[in-house]
């Protein structure tokens, strides 16, 4: 599952605790909705099905490539392009080269993790339809939101809000799509 854009609109319900959100998410999933998303000020184990992140693999690969590049740069510079006899140590000085290689590995892996996150999370994105909701600011403070895509097969303009209301939310909001 990817980051939702709600291009078809969405139904949102506001809750005042992580617990209530978790219960609501489970209930909606059980009643057959699949395009769900939550918004919360702290990470919540809502049990929604999600794909496993492939970020670790990407980070491993980029890190390995970064390390390889760091080693090759040193080999090219000191052993191939401009060998200098310093302290009698060999031009191709494996123990010495390992240190910048380590740093290069970590640097590339860290950059991959950082930028990788912003890419998969599709940030920066100063504007998002949910920000149009009045009072959504509290989603980063103390309110918990459950959102259901209007494009979900099970969504319907009158049924879905009713189902959401049954979960005892503070309120239910309809977000228009099309923007």
């Amino acid at each position: 599952m990817r980051e939702r854009t709600w291009s078809a609109g969405a139904y949102l319900a506001e809750f005042d605790s992580a617990d209530a959100l978790t219960r609501a998410a489970h209930a909606m999933e059980e009643s057959g909705y699949s395009l769900l998303e939550t918004y919360s000020p702290v990470p919540v184990a809502h049990g929604l099905r999600r794909s496993t992140s492939r970020l670790p693999i990407a980070v491993f690969i980029v890190g390995a490539l970064g390390g390889l590049a760091s080693y090759l740069i040193q080999w090219y510079a000191n052993a191939y392009s401009y060998p200098l006899d310093i302290g009698g140590r060999p031009s191709h000085a494996v123990p010495a080269f390992l240190i910048p290689t380590f740093e290069g590995t970590v640097l590339s892996a860290a950059l991959a993790a950082f930028f990788g996150f912003f890419i998969v999370a599709r940030l920066p994105q100063p504007y998002h339809p949910v920000f149009d909701i009045d009072g959504f600011e509290r989603a980063t403070v103390d309110r918990y939101w459950l959102a259901i895509d209007a494009a979900d097969d099970r969504s319907s303009p009158d049924l879905t809000p009713r189902e959401l209301h049954r979960l005892d939310p503070l309120r239910v909001v309809r977000l228009e799509g099309g923007s």
Binding site: P124, Q125, P126, Y127, F131, D132, S179
Partner: peptide
């Protein structure tokens, strides 16, 4: 209340990152 940032800021944000 409208969102803090209008939709076009998404383009600006990405463009400035690039």
């Amino acid at each position: 209340m409208p969102a803090l940032f209008p939709p076009w800021t998404n383009v600006v944000a990405r463009a400035s990152l690039i």
